[in-house]
Nucleic acid binder design. Structure first.
Lengths: 156, 156
DNA sequence: TCCTGAACAGTATTTTTTACTGAATATCAT
DNA sequence: ATGATATTCAGTAAAAAATACTGTTCAGGA
């Protein structure tokens, strides 16, 4: 099979996105194949880039990361160079988990995770606001994470 | 050890958040322990809730999910009942990966993943806008996903 | 100092992963 | 239609990993 997904591949991806600790045997049973072809498919899905990586998802609160902040940033100018410079700088901060470039006014949305409000203040002052070409910077604290899902729903 | 993390636990979590396909042996070598205690620690981190689950992260674009949308929702009223009702409804939509309750005006930010603009239009019309008590609904298309990280940086 | 419990390394067993083989099935050109 | 070719499958075997178990060392408290 050359780089195209059939129903079984899709089912495998739906399963692994939910729980990658399942054995090949378990998955094989769920999709109705034997172990060998199931294993081959899973391996192929990885090598062909459908699966980027396997990770452990941890409990944020349990680990003392109590504050989740959404931060909207607008830049003074929108030259390629300025955008590129900002992007390259901001992705380096370990506190910044996501950086999205948003349509409309050319701006960015940052998802930032820190221990607490003090920690956030320190981060903004010592790191974020020191970046060049920032015009405005607006922070919104997240009161509650109602849903957090990493699995895309794939239908065949 | 009763429910507290030491330096080794933290290192294990940092490793597994980046790549959970590593063998216990590999991790043991990285943290400077033998396989047995390393395995015990990993198992404990799971049972004690530090690790929520193991998942495969897939390539969104590769799988035809070309559109990522941030949608801000404000409700007509902020009674407990109304909020609860909205939250319970919206988490059921498979297209909605994240739901965050934001400080300030009582509103929500939704991260929505769909195939394309048509798909999004259909979703809004047939699902999202049909929810009761919605006051305003503002959609922003994501032009580019600059950074997407699921690992929290843990320092000891 | 002796006792107790926690954490470790090492070993053994079970399970899983991975590679390999041949059969069945589908594909395609003749 | 038929034969050649490639793909996908199941089954088996070997390698590797996960898991359970055992005894030892080390630290803290009576």
């Amino acid at each position: 099979m050359i780089d195209k997904l059939d129903k079984l591949d899709t089912r495998i991806l739906n399963i692994l996105q939910k729980d990658s600790s399942l054995s090949t045997k378990d998955i094989a049973q769920q999709i109705g194949l034997s172990v060998s072809p199931t294993h081959e498919r899973i391996k192929r899905l990885k090598t062909e880039g459908y699966i980027e990586k396997y990770v452990a998802l941890v409990n944020r609160e349990r680990l003392g990361k109590h504050l989740l902040v959404l931060c909207t940033v607008t830049l003074k100018e929108q030259s390629i160079e300025t955008l590129k410079n900002f992007e390259e700088s901001v992705i380096c901060f370990k506190e910044v988990l996501e950086v999205l470039c948003i349509a409309g006014g050319q701006d960015y949305l940052l998802k930032i995770v820190v221990d607490d409000v003090d920690d956030y203040h320190t981060f903004v002052v010592t790191h974020l606001s020191s970046l060049s070409n920032i015009s405005t910077l607006s922070s919104s604290f997240v009161l509650k994470e109602i849903k957090r899902e990493t699995a895309y729903y794939l239908n065949y």
